[in-house]
């Protein structure tokens, strides 16, 4: 395929987050909260070779740390992280759900003390089962509809 027909250009150096759930790219961006003046490409509802659709994010000149990359798993657990150097993939790994998330999410329990005007940072811990659920350290409730609880 010629470069001029590509929807999004290749990057020489940076990070590509692939296999993001369709229409979740903007939630991934909210989780990462990157403050960068570097070029960023967002591809939404792209056709996946594996069938169905996916979103892709490309960050030119930004190498995500493993800690940052793992935050992606909060909203898109099957996403893959590709670190690009010299136009080649030098490292590829899956995002792993972090054990503890501080300050990014808000509790879905409106009566939780963490939703009041108190000088604390929210904290959620990954539940022990495989359900990819997070439990509020304060009220001990499961967070509901996690993607909607980012940075509210």
């Amino acid at each position: 395929m010629s470069q001029k027909y590509m929807k999004v250009e290749r990057i020489d150096h940076g990070t590509v987050i692939d296999h993001i759930l369709p229409s979740m790219a903007f939630d991934v961006l909210r989780v990462l909260d990157l403050s960068s003046d570097k070029t960023m490409s967002i591809l939404v509802n792209s056709h996946s070779k594996k069938g169905g659709k996916k979103d892709i994010l490309k960050f030119e000149g930004v190498e995500l740390s493993a800690e940052e990359a793992n935050l992606v798993a909060l909203v898109s657990p099957q996403a893959t992280i590709n670190i690009i150097v010299g136009g080649k993939v030098v490292r590829k790994f899956n995002a792993e759900a972090p054990e503890v998330v501080r300050g990014i999410l808000t509790c879905s329990n409106p009566n939780c003390i963490s939703n009041q005007n108190e000088p604390i940072t929210t904290e959620f811990r990954l539940g022990p089962d495989e359900g990819h659920r997070y439990v509020c350290t304060y009220c001990e409730r499961d967070i509901v509809d996690l993607a909607k609880r980012i940075g509210l």
Partner: peptide, 13 residues
């Protein structure tokens, strides 16, 4: 005693 869930946990901090 407090009306909000998690208040006691916060208090420990």
């Amino acid at each position: 005693r407090h009306p909000r869930e998690g208040a006691a946990k916060l208090a420990t901090e």
